[in-house]
Design a protein around this nucleic acid. Structure first.
Length: 297
DNA sequence: ATTTGGTGTTGTG
DNA sequence: CACAACACCAAAT
């Protein structure tokens, strides 16, 4: 009895467990049945669930976890952050999520104006588990993920700690539309961009602005990001700043990889980083089916 | 494979 | 002001 209305959120727990398994075992090319067994589902049921969630088969997903695929994502790492790339000279030219406008708020401004700054928040299902969405009247200010076991509280505490002078009010009815839109690629439109407010230090904001230039289906490295900021030796500082990005997924910190293509840390768990990268690979496959763009020639 | 040394920025005291 | 921490990276064991 397959559930009729099963959503990506319902599927994520099984997907997460399979991704954990695949991260440990992809070298051995585990057969589909072994993965299915590990998550406690029969083969066909697992296959369908996975395809529904990722848009691609488990086999293609395993491919998306390999170092080869990571290197493919990095193919234009340095140029991705250039203006020329954005104009479309060398870029994929598709699914470039310029669906975000942002404004920055430095700590100084925040402190001065922070007296009236209220954040509303709500928890919402998404393809990567339960998400915490936070917003000010000026736009989306935070997006975080809940721990699979420990639940909501640590995630909320993590976010509240970042803005000690703000006030917080739970209002899921007011944040629901953010979640619905952010995780539905059909709604990624540049005509009516998502408003994001970035609250951080000057350096952090410069790093996060760069992240917004990385399209779906591409990735860059900490080193190239540092170079693009004019500080070629600051890879590690960039790593710290990327790690403090409060608006994960929307500001795509998951598209920053190590120089070699290794998937390095993720504030919300490396498993989740892999899951997001694989899920986005599914988007690319879907869009190339309909567009059949023969680029990268 | 693992260790070591050089990095820039931030948070803490 | 000093110092530790960090989602890095290259060079040397």
């Amino acid at each position: 009895m397959a559930p009729i209305n099963s959503s990506p959120a319902d599927d994520y727990d099984a997907v997460r467990r399979s991704v954990e398994y695949l991260i440990d075992n992809w070298r051995n090319q585990p057969p589909l049945g072994a993965v299915a067994k590990h998550v406690g589902l029969n083969e066909t049921r697992f296959q369908k669930l996975f395809k529904r969630w990722a848009g691609i088969s488990p086999k293609d997903f395993v491919q998306a976890l390999t170092i080869d695929h990571a290197r493919y994502l990095l193919r234009d790492s340095a140029s991705i952050l250039d203006a020329a790339y954005e104009v479309g000279l060398s870029g994929p030219g598709r699914l470039h999520d310029l669906f975000v406008t942002h404004e920055a708020m430095t700590p100084g401004e925040y402190k001065a104006g922070g007296a009236g700054l209220e954040m509303i928040y709500g928890f919402h299902d998404c393809p990567f588990g339960e998400a915490l969405v936070m917003a000010t009247s000026r736009g989306l200010s935070g997006l975080a993920f809940c721990n699979d076991i420990r639940g909501r509280a640590p995630t909320l505490a993590d976010m509240i700690r970042r803005w000690p002078n703000a006030t917080f009010r739970e209002d899921p009815d007011a944040t629901a539309h953010y979640a619905a839109r952010i995780f539905d690629p059909e709604q990624w439109r540049s005509e009516e961009p998502l408003r994001v407010v970035m609250i951080g230090t000057d350096f952090e904001i410069r790093v996060w602005e760069k992240l917004l230039r990385i399209p779906v289906g591409a990735a860059t490295t900490y080193g190239d990001l540092a170079a693009a900021l004019g500080k070629p030796k600051a890879a590690r500082a960039v790593g710290s700043a990327v790690g403090r990005n409060p608006v994960s997924f929307v500001v795509p910190c998951h598209r920053v990889l190590g120089k070699t293509g290794s998937v390095t840390g993720y504030h919300w768990g490396v498993t989740r980083k892999h899951a997001i990268i694989g899920w986005e690979t599914g988007l690319i496959n879907k869009s190339s089916e309909s567009l059949s763009l023969g680029d990268f020639g």
